[in-house]
Nucleic acid binder design. Structure first.
Length: 485
RNA sequence: GGCGGCAUAGCCAAGCGGUAAGGCAGAGGUCUGCAAAACCUUCAUUCACCGGUUCGAUUCCGGUUGCCGCCUCCA
């Protein structure tokens, strides 16, 4: 594959650090390193989590489609206060809780078409690296010990708050900063926590304990991606203090400076909201991925999450989910129509997104604009199929290559259309407790009525099915049905 | 209180200095026994409000109003 630098204009990426769009050039030509903060596995994930991982999955797919090799690391925080609390409530060991929810998370992500990252490190499997990094910070005088705790001394790191653009003095007088007797400054944060009875702990130079929250991401990203890597991502709520702290401890350990930044670009996601309020555990206004995908086909959920640019908030609303589901059905219906004249697309068929689509994605991964391009291409395909003007088959074939290329990037419309549509129907029948044979029987009965010109009976059957969100479609020679999404 | 973001048609949503993408809904039409699907036509002289810069602003600057976020765990 040709190197992406060869011809195409650079990808524009909004960088939180500089607060502007910058041309993206990876540290190593042709290769992108990406770290995204993963979930703390103490419960099911909600749609807010899903948005982040669907987006970064799409980013990775896009980068790969234009020729980059992507090394993508996304961690699991599998030791933490909440996990311990949950384990105590359930009377289970902490790792039983974390392992369960790692499995649930993976199941949710797979359903949403989120591919596994290159690396999925767990905190508990990187205690050695975390201790080593903490020790480096203590040795360098950037951190201090207090009892069995180790704290990072924020004052010793000159660039602190450069990401979140805060004023240290203002923060110090803020009433909400954690007060802890052992800290030299309220802003200092814990790298290593002394063990409390009954909690998971590991031996360290400072006695038994466990890692603080922030240090894990520094240790694991550096292990898998190096001391400097290209893009670090996560939800906007991680900018402060989590990512700020990651920068401080990482650069304090490696020397930092402009020649050796921790992450070269920072990429933060807008929130999923409900009635314009952030979806969150603490507000209780969240929907789990598990529950949502009972209600909606996961591909529709993924489509919905891509309809808004990643930095803007996206409001969770049933109307929007319904609309997304209909668009997914429309896309697959179109693809299925194309297949009837072009034949089923083989795996070897060329799948190259249109230049227009790629341009939209290149501009800060603008999936909303890209979906707009896709809408035009789908409409054009149907138009060709309807009008069959000169040269239509050739145009249709190249359009299909474009659509399949876009599908591969978006992670939507990748399935074989007929079987997708069939599974969609099956899914609906299961949800209303009806059998395929029941529908077929009614269709046959209606066909008989139509033949006998008994249209009132035929219409009654149609109405009966419409009530069950089943729409009949009379085609030449046969009647099919679809789900009214 | 500090810092930051956002306000585009009935709804969702791109655009961010050169005269408003796309989707949903609505209206009309082609097709149909009737429908559905699909397609066609139509649907913002205007981008919260007030000033400023500019030949030109939805896009830049200042202010006003409203909403949201971070400052504590959060994706």
């Amino acid at each position: 594959m040709t190197s992406p630098e060869d011809s195409a204009p650079a990808i524009q990426l909004f960088d939180t650090l500089t607060a502007r769009k910058v041309p993206f050039e990876p540290l190593v030509p042709g290769r992108v390193s990406l770290y995204v903060c993963g979930v703390t596995v103490y419960d099911f994930s909600h749609i807010g989590h899903a948005r982040v991982y669907v987006f970064f999955d799409t980013m990775v797919r896009f980068l790969e489609s234009v020729g980059y090799e992507v090394r993508y690391a996304r961690n699991f925080t599998d030791v933490d206060d909440k996990i311990i609390k949950r384990a105590n409530e359930l009377g289970l060991p902490a790792n039983a809780v974390s392992e369960k929810f790692i499995g649930e998370f993976k199941a949710d992500m797979a359903a949403l078409g989120v591919r596994a990252p290159t690396f999925e490190p767990k905190v508990t499997e990187h205690i050695t690296e975390i201790i080593a990094l903490t020790k480096t910070l203590v040795d360098r005088g950037a951190a201090y010990t207090a009892g069995g705790d180790v704290f990072f001394e924020v004052e010793k790191f000159p660039g602190y708050a450069k990401l979140s653009k805060r004023d240290l003095k203002e923060m110090q007088v803020g009433a909400r900063v954690d007060v802890n007797e052992a800290k030299r400054s309220p802003l200092d944060f814990v790298l290593w926590k002394a063990a409390k009875p009954g909690e998971p702990s590991w031996e360290s130079p400072w006695g038994a304990g466990r890692p603080g929250w922030h240090i894990e991401c520094s240790a694991m990203s550096m292990k898998y991606l190096g001391e400097t890597f290209d893009i670090h991502g996560g939800g906007s709520d991680l900018i402060f203090p989590h990512h700020e702290n990651e920068i401080a401890q990482s650069e304090a350990a490696t020397g930092g400076g402009s020649s050796k930044p921790f992450a070269r670009h920072w990429c933060h996601m807008g929130f999923v909201t409900i009635d314009a309020e952030k979806m969150s555990k603490s507000l209780g206004n969240f929907f789990t991925v598990r529950d949502v995908r009972k209600e909606y086909h996961p591909e529709g959920v993924r489509y919905f999450l891509l309809t808004t640019h990643y930095r803007s908030p996206i409001n969770y609303a049933t109307q929007s989910l319904d609309e997304a589901a209909r668009r997914v059905a429309y896309g697959y219906t179109t693809l299925a129509r194309m297949n009837t004249v072009l034949g089923v697309a083989s795996a070897s068929i060329s799948a190259v997104a249109s230049a227009e689509f790629i341009d939209a994605m290149r501009d800060d991964f603008n999936t909303a604009a890209a979906l707009g391009v896709l809408a035009g291409e789908l409409r054009e395909a149907n138009e060709l199929l309807d009008k069959r003007a000169a040269g239509w088959k050739e145009k249709l074939a190249s359009l299909r290559a474009n659509l399949l290329g876009a599908a591969r990037i978006l992670g939507v419309f990748e399935a074989e259309p007929e079987s997708f549509l069939a599974s969609w129907r099956a899914r609906h029948l299961a949800s209303i407790g009806m059998a395929e044979a029941d529908v077929e029987r009614l269709i046959a009965e209606r066909q008989a009525a139509r033949k006998g010109k008994d249209f009132s009976r035929a219409d009654a059957i149609r109405a009966e099915l419409v009530a069950k969100r089943i729409l009949l479609q009379d085609e030449p020679g046969r009647t099919t049905w679809r789900v009214d999404a």
